[in-house]
């Protein structure tokens, strides 16, 4: 039995003038103990999906279950066994760290002591400030407290909706370290994020865009499926370099990527052609190297494919 299963989930939002489709037939399974990432920009439908799985919203079509319980029929059971951390850190700003935790423990009919082992590693960092009001904590600390609150009843499935959005890179790293440790305790974790580079940290990921899943696989396999040749190119004049690249017939796509431009070629084994082409222009300190794609390269590629399918 999968820990979480979604079958063809469709969700509409009605506004005054039109109907917006937030989810267009989402299906996937998450196995027990898996760290499953849902990666996609804002508007991909991540939050709607999480809300449907956590029984907060009703889907318009399709079925879903968590630990075998149906999200509509058995919503009461599900509410007992899942932990949920919504997009905004949902804490009581005017309660102290300890009061927040105690409160969430009691509403889940448990105590801090009873499940202390689950949160211990995270809570130790918070303990020196347990008398401090949650509103006065730094972003990273709030995030940790919210995670503790979601874990206090030792849930069998943990839903984390964009826990790292707007959090700095250091706290983000720390957060993923915490998730890895939680995974070792056998908790199934579903986490959504807009940061593509976090995909590599998951067992499997679903890449989502505009209510559709572009691909579901392990990060390595997603990268494997990127069949085209990819080059990283840079020179001292990055902007004109990009224009030059885009004007080259053999180039399918070229875009900024950190310190380099990433260049997707139409055909295999064209490194020499690319070098020859670029040498015609005055590109100082030109550097060209064949590279492995990043998840973000795959996402861009998949987005374009899905866009083309739509156009046809």
């Amino acid at each position: 039995m999968p820990s979480v299963s979604a079958k063809n989930i469709v969700k509409f939002y009605e506004t005054k003038n039109d109907k917006i489709q937030a989810l267009c037939g989402i299906s996937f399974n998450v196995t027990k103990g898996e760290l499953f990432g849902i990666i996609g920009p804002d508007g991909a439908g991540k939050t709607s999906l999480f809300r449907i799985l956590t029984t907060l919203l009703l889907a318009d079509k399709g079925a879903a279950s968590v630990d075998g319980y149906d999200v509509v029929k058995d919503f009461k059971e599900i509410r007992k066994i899942v932990g949920y951390m919504p997009g905004r850190f949902s804490l009581y700003q005017d309660l102290t760290v300890e009061e927040n935790l105690e409160f969430f423990a009691t509403i889940f009919n448990t105590t801090i002591q009873q499940n202390y082992d689950v949160i211990k590693e995270i809570y130790i960092q918070l303990e020196p400030f347990k008398k401090r009001r949650a509103g006065k904590l730094s972003g990273g600390m709030k995030q940790k407290l919210a995670l503790c609150c979601a874990l206090i009843h030792k849930p069998s499935v943990l839903f984390l909706d964009e826990p790292t959005t707007g959090v700095d890179a250091v706290s983000r790293n720390e957060f993923w370290d915490m998730l890895k440790k939680l995974k070792q305790q056998g908790i199934t974790i579903l986490v959504s994020t807009p940061y593509m580079n976090e995909a590599a940290l998951c067992d499997r990921v679903a890449l989502m865009q505009l209510g559709k899943i572009l691909s579901i696989n392990s990060p390595a396999e997603i990268i494997n499926q990127f069949k085209k040749d990819l080059f990283a190119v840079r020179s001292s004049k990055m902007l004109s370099l990009l224009n030059d690249l885009k004007n080259f017939n053999e180039v399918e796509d070229a875009y900024f990527f950190g310190a380099y431009h990433h260049v997707v070629m139409k055909h295999k084994n064209e490194e020499q052609d690319l070098k020859n082409y670029l040498s015609k222009y005055s590109n100082d300190n030109l550097e060209i190297k064949n590279i492995q794609p990043d998840i973000e390269d795959c996402f861009i590629e998949l987005m374009k494919q899905s866009h083309e399918i739509e156009l046809h």
Partner: peptide
Amino acid sequence: ETGTMEVLLVSPA
């Protein structure tokens, strides 16, 4: 507004 209701709803309370 603060989103805590979401967490409360997804609880056995």
